[in-house]
Design a protein around this nucleic acid. Structure first.
Lengths: 109, 109
DNA sequence: ACGTTAAATAAGCGAGTACTTATTGATTGT
DNA sequence: ACAATCAATAAGTACTCGCTTATTTAACGT
């Protein structure tokens, strides 16, 4: 129905694959080159590159070229649309206040 | 590699489809029977039932039979694993404090 | 009991996904 | 220039997904 997929579509889809989510999670521990990321998992280098491309298209990571290596890192603003989406239903959640409090505790300090 | 998919897998996957997310969003406005949900969208009743099954398997909605109708509603605790997953990388987000504050504002009042 | 309505299930189809191996592109060191 | 290293792209394949129509199961009203 729409030519371009919504941002939420890409984010949810990107994070729905275990390998891809594992790659993303490993990047939260610090930026890394494709070579190093590949070494951490049992999939081939092209597979890693493809996952990184998907994550990048979803706005979750950035690529920075340094010589022949490309370092990928988490884009801090990347998950904003996801948080926004959850927050958009704050109306619903506030109707279940007892739950909301618990949820907020987890994101709060 | 694992026989049973992780909860996060199912949640992210369930929400990655626009139709399915639309169905879920419509349920945040209140419980509804399959028939009524079907009327809201341009897809067939079996398609709706299949989406609901996916959402239910992800723990996002509940089905309650009443006569020959089945009413579906949002499971308030359903998104907890998703919040947990985000919170799990609070360590990363707190290293980007300027961002975290903004994110929290959206979930806060 | 009968026909009707509501929902789930079955089967099948086209499109998309996640991988692989092979190749190409880009940068480096000698 | 040349060989080596790192990453992206190409092409192919098995599997999954989201939809459809057809059928089945369940509960109703008369």
């Amino acid at each position: 129905m729409q030519a371009t997929a919504a941002v939420e579509d890409r984010i949810f889809h990107a994070l729905s694959d275990p390998s891809r989510r594992a790659i993303f999670e490993s990047l939260t521990r610090g930026e890394a080159a494709v070579k190093d990321i590949t070494a951490r998992f049992k999939i081939s280098q092209p597979a890693v590159s493809q996952h990184l491309a998907t994550l990048r298209d979803a706005g979750l990571v950035n690529g920075r070229r340094e010589g022949r290596r490309v370092f990928y890192s988490v884009e801090p603003r990347g998950m904003e649309p996801l948080i926004d989406w959850i927050a958009h239903y704050r109306g619903f959640w506030t109707e279940h206040l007892e739950r909301l409090d618990q949820l907020l505790e987890k994101l709060d300090t």
